[in-house]
Nucleic acid binder design. Structure first.
Lengths: 114, 114
DNA sequence: TTTCAGTGCAACCCAATGGTTGCACGAGGA
DNA sequence: TCCTCGTGCAACCATTGGGTTGCACTGAAA
């Protein structure tokens, strides 16, 4: 699972960083509601400038959470659920690992030092 | 599920923000490996100062990912898997919702505009 | 062909944040 | 009792990052 200290370029890194910003989450919500939209269209909904939206979309694209597709003079962005699901699984696995380790330590404590 | 734009004080917000930092993830890894440890002990493992560790632990505690317990003159921190699991579920549900919406939009496009 | 909506690029601003050092304080062990 | 280890607090620094404004470019409609 490679959760160890040598976690350089962890795939979930970009996703977590992208999801950490509330504006970005709102942006993803708006995108998911429409199915696909351009930066300008999204800027009309959110209380930030188009340029800010574009920056966020770039971050989201690097995280694989959206894909960009140019059609004529506009660029439509579409949400991608896959990395979301992958990260969910990663988190879940990590939680499981913690549970295991903590249980093992507790068990050892109860037996070796009574 | 309240994923809407009025997502003030979203419970996963703190968790995502906390998990977004790689140093913090390494810190959690070290903590989970030991089961529990003090800030000073953790500082011996990671390449940052104790004070930096303390700051990170504060963030993690606010996110519910660790709990602090004082024993004598030292404070031992213990990882808490629960918010991790909750966030995993939240992400998974969000991914599911995206899937639903995108499928519905695709379906509508194929039928209403043939 | 002229006009206009949508993008792309760049410079700039300010607040948040990860990190450091220095020092004072309190609890335990020698 | 004295010394020491682990904390807590505060000031401070550099960088990142979210956000804005301004301008140049391009494709499509009038």
């Amino acid at each position: 699972m490679t959760v160890g200290p040598t976690e350089a370029a962890e795939p979930v890194d970009d996703v977590l960083a992208a999801l950490a910003d509330p504006t970005r989450r709102a942006l993803l919500d708006a995108l998911a509601a429409r199915g696909a939209a351009s930066a300008s269209a999204l800027a009309a909904d959110l209380p930030v400038s188009r340029q800010a939206i574009v920056k966020h979309l770039t971050v989201l694209e690097r995280a694989g959470l959206v894909t960009a597709a140019r059609t004529g003079r506009e660029v439509r962005y579409t949400p991608r659920p896959q990395p979301l699901d992958a990260t969910a699984r990663w988190l879940s696995a990590l939680a499981g690992e913690w549970d295991r380790r903590l249980a093992a330590i507790k068990h050892a404590a109860e037996h070796d030092l009574p």
